Simulated scan of single mutants.
Amino acid sequence: MTQISSLTHALSINPATAEQIGHYPYESATELDAALARASAGFATWRRTPLAQRAQALIALAQALRDNATSMARMITLEMGKPLTQARGEIEKCAQLCLWYAEHGPAMLAAEPTQVEGAKARIEYRPLGPILAVMPWNFPIWQVLRGAVPALIAGNTYVLKHAPNVMGSAYLLRDALRQAGFAEGVFEVINVTPDGVSSAIADPRIAAVTLTGSVRAGMAIGAQAGAALKKCVLELGGSDPFIVLNDADLDEAVKAAVLGRYQNTGQVCAAAKRLIIEQGVVEEFTRKFVELTRQLVVG
C-alpha cells in the first residue's frame, strides 16, 4: 500500500480509531492562482448583487445546511471527534446564524446620515474584496460561517483555507453553498501548504486576512498581512481560568466546570483550561468533579 504523506496531502484521521478516512492532495501554485482568480471575478459580480438577493442566498444556505445536517455532522464527528449530538447542534447553530443575518444584515449595512463641519454626509459600508480565512478544526463549520456569513452578505467573497485534518468538512460546506445557489468564486476552498497561504496573503487579489488559531500562527499571519498592508483580524488562543471560592454552590460549580472542560471534547477557545479552587473547598470540589465525570464517561 502506498503511504500517503502529510507533506503532500491534507490527512483526515479519525481521532477515536486512528483510521485515515480521507486524504486530499495539496494544490499547486497554478491551482491556487485559479482559485484566487475565481474569487476575484466572483467579487466583481457579487458586490453588485442586490442586498436583498444576498440575504435570500443566506436563507437558501440555512436550508441547505439543514438538508445536509446528517452527512455534515457525521463528517465533523469522524474528523474531529466531538459527539454526534454536538456536531448536529453545530450545523443547526450555523443555519440559525444564516437566518439571523438574512433578517438583520440589510439594516446593519444601511447608509447612515451624518454631518461633517455642518455639511450633510453619510457613512456607507462597502465590501473590501476577497477575504482569506485560515480556520481551525475544533468547530469545522461554525468557525468558518461565523466569519463568512457577515462578510458574504456585505458583498465580499470568501477564500477558505481550512485545517488539514477537516478538509472533508470544508468540501461538504462548499457543496452546501453551491446547493444554495452561490455562484462560483463567491466561496472558494483552497487546500494549500503554509507556503501557499503566504502566497495568497501576498497576492493583490486578496483584500484582507483573518485567522483563528494559535498565538504562533497569529504572529506569522499578522506579520505577513502587515507586510502586505492587508487588513487583518486574529482570534488567538488563551488559558482561561475557572475560579471557585469557598462560598460557591459546589453542585452548580461542578456542573459548570465539567461542561467548561469537556464541551466539544474540550476543544473550545474559552474552555476551562485551569481550575483554581479555594483551599476550603478544593477536596469536596475535586471529589464531586471526579464523580460527575465518571458518570458522564461510564453512563
Rank of each mutant, 00 (worst) to 15 (best):
A29I: 13
L236T: 02
R122Q: 15
E278D: 13
N191F: 07
I13R: 07
V258M: 05
E284W: 00
A102E: 12
V268H: 01
G213S: 01
Y26Q: 04
A225I: 08
M167E: 15
G155H: 05
V244W: 01
I276N: 06
Y125E: 11
I190Q: 03
I91E: 11
A10K: 05
Q96H: 09
M1G: 09
F187Y: 11
T2E: 13
I91T: 06
T293E: 08
P25H: 13
T265I: 03
V159T: 02
Y26R: 07
S199E: 13
H9D: 13
A163R: 00
L51K: 02
A151E: 07
L7A: 11
E19N: 13
G222W: 02
P140D: 06
Q267S: 05
R146C: 00
I153S: 08
D33L: 02
T8L: 14
K93P: 12
A170T: 09
W142N: 05
R174H: 15
L234D: 01
I131Q: 01
W100P: 04
A223F: 10
E31K: 11
V297K: 10
A208C: 14
K255M: 08
A55M: 12
E278H: 13
V189T: 11
A41R: 10
L58S: 07
G168N: 12
G237P: 08
R38D: 15
P106Y: 03
L296F: 11
G147M: 00
V258D: 07
A121C: 12
G222S: 08
E90F: 01
R54S: 08
Q279C: 01
K231N: 11
K230V: 03
Y262P: 02
T30F: 11
V254S: 04
V254M: 07
E103W: 06
Q115M: 09
L84G: 04
V189A: 01
G81E: 07
L229I: 12
R274A: 07
A133T: 01
V298T: 12
L275G: 09
L211A: 07
S40V: 05
V159F: 01
Q279W: 02
D195T: 15
F43W: 14
P194K: 05
A272G: 14
T114L: 15
L61R: 07
K231R: 15
I59A: 07
I206Q: 12
G213L: 00
M75T: 14
N156E: 05
A148Q: 05
E291T: 15
T265H: 05
I76M: 14
P50F: 08
V282G: 01
V268I: 15
D240K: 02
A148K: 02
Y26S: 03
I190M: 09
V258F: 11
A111M: 09
Y262T: 06
V258K: 04
L229F: 14
A102I: 12
T8Y: 10
A208W: 04
P150T: 06
H9V: 06
M80Y: 00
W137H: 07
T17L: 03
G147H: 00
L61F: 02
A69I: 14
G222T: 03
A248W: 09
A154G: 12
A107N: 12
G238I: 10
V282Q: 15
T265D: 05
A39Y: 04
T30H: 15
V197S: 00
L78F: 08
K93L: 10
N156K: 04
A64S: 14
I243W: 05
W46M: 08
L160S: 06
Q115D: 08
A55S: 15
Y171K: 09
